[in-house]
């Protein structure tokens, strides 16, 4: 088994793809944390804990859920909104939950507005600007999510979670697979259940700034 662990960065300018370091994806019913395969139950607990510990826990919904291209997408959007509302209710003063969209993947040039959106080609701008220290990708196509997760691991210390509708992401620090409305709702329930049991981080030393 690989000794490599997928940990918050900044790792270095071009971090290796976790797959090339021997990290493999979970089977159905499983998840991974830092590249180690775990039960899905454990991943719900850890993801909720990371959200509740963060100063700026953030959800990044991507085009697959922002655009109502089918009924399922719209339902997932509703579940994501519920997760965000739950986070807002469960964080303590001094913490700030955010919901920032990734509307599409165009490498917007010369700039994006990092207050209102995230772009997969330079996601670090949004992370740095908002001092995001824990984020969850949902509804982002695999190749763009991989690119983005690697850039975040390379240049920031943000903890990354992937709520992936396919087979999961090695390049996230924690990844679910086969994301569904039920799974997003279950994560919201776990956040609610753990409310008050997790202490938020005191310092912003590892708050997502580059180094």
């Amino acid at each position: 088994m690989s000794q490599y662990r997928v940990l918050p960065g900044p790792e270095h300018f071009l971090p290796p793809a976790a797959a090339s370091m021997g990290i493999f994806l979970p089977n159905p019913g499983e998840a991974h944390i830092n590249g180690v395969i775990v039960s899905e139950e454990k991943a719900y607990e850890e993801a909720a804990r990371q959200f509740l510990m963060a100063k700026v826990p953030t959800i990044f919904p991507g085009p697959l859920v922002l655009w109502a291209w089918n009924e399922k997408a719209a339902k997932k959007a509703t579940a994501i909104r519920h997760l965000y509302n739950t986070l807002k209710e469960c964080v303590q003063p001094g913490q700030m939950a955010m919901l920032i969209p990734m509307p599409d993947y165009r490498p917007k040039y010369p700039k994006i507005n990092p207050e209102v959106e995230i772009n997969p080609n330079h996601p670090n701008l949004t992370i740095w600007h908002n001092k995001i220290d824990c984020c969850m990708f949902v509804g982002v196509h695999c190749h763009q999510a991989n690119l983005s997760l690697k850039i975040i691991r390379g240049g920031t210390s943000c903890y990354t979670i992937a709520m992936c509708a396919q087979a999961g992401h090695e390049d996230a620090m924690l990844s679910f697979r086969d994301a569904s409305v039920e799974k997003i709702m279950k994560l919201a329930d776990t956040v609610k259940r753990l409310k008050g049991t997790v202490q938020p981080r005191q310092t912003s030393a590892k708050s997502g700034s580059s180094n």
Binding site: V65, L66, A74, A77, P101, P103, V116
Partner: peptide, 14 residues
């Protein structure tokens, strides 16, 4: 018809 924003996330779209 295919170009619609999900209602629950409409307000956060740029």
């Amino acid at each position: 018809e295919r170009i619609k924003i999900s209602e629950d996330l409409y307000d956060i779209m740029p």
